[in-house]
Amino acid sequence: MTADIISVKNVSKFYGEVLGVNRVTVDIEPGLTGLVGPNGSGKSTLMHLLCGLLRPTRGSISVIGVPPDKPEELFRLVGYCTQYDSFPNGSTGYSFLSHTLALHGLDGVDADRRAWEVLEQVGLTEAARRRIAGYSKGMRQRIKLAQAICHDPRVLILDEPLNGLDPMGRAEMIDLFKELAGAGRHVIVSSHILHEVDLISDGVIMIHGGSVVAEGSIRDVRGEITAQPLQVLVRCDRPHAIAARAFEFAHVVEAQIVDEATGVLLRTTDAGAFFPELGRIILDSGVEVETVTPADESVHAVYDYLIGDGGGGP
């Protein structure tokens, strides 16, 4: 349904002569979407454009039917957690949130109630009356997230939201993102930590040098990279048997026994033909198979293939 889609059409943004993003066209459906790319690739620029903090040099954007140059309508639907680690001088966690809620039109009592609800949701109830300037990096990240979700938006845009959070905090936030996306919302998360994007995303948008190099589900994106053979790891009791039979097929270009002969890593140039044939090999040879998993159907692998230099993470 068009009304549920975030639509970016042929959008370019230049800062003077410096390219921000170039001819970006994407449609983002509800669910959790990972926005990945190296530093300076244009992720934050794209997020700013979606929220009207930047205006496109050309092209058009519609966030579930609302153009970003109408903040009075847009931010009823959208919450944005920016990368900026700065806050209004002198604000406490509570005053920061209640001020935001008052701007949303809530009266004192409702703003107060909702502020405490959200503070509890992000685990900042005890620190609510303290000045944000004294918060740890993780707490500041949480209060920014609280500001983004306090009005229960349909679209949540999060620029590196897991930065500064400890492992427990990351897990809690990832659960929260999944819960919000599961409820039919758009959750767009940029992160340079690719395995986390892999864990949480239904789909990805890969951006490099200001251009979108791939978008869609990880599997679809991987499927389109035909230049790189698909890697499939088969864990079984007799990997040599599978390796020997696999070479009967022309599309299998490599078979590698791995992990002390507990599995075989196969590389194939024809994923469509490979899986039925693998099934036949297994049945014919009577090998006991534990798992069959694609080894490079991950954000990390796809990123490596398309952009290179791996992404990484801490």
Binding site: L53, P71, E73, T82, Y84, P88, N89, L103
Partner: peptide, 14 residues
């Protein structure tokens, strides 16, 4: 002080 964006992220006409 890099905090103006919070006002621009509220549903407030400029």
């Amino acid at each position: 002080e890099r905090s103006l964006h919070y006002h621009l992220l509220a549903p407030v006409r400029r």
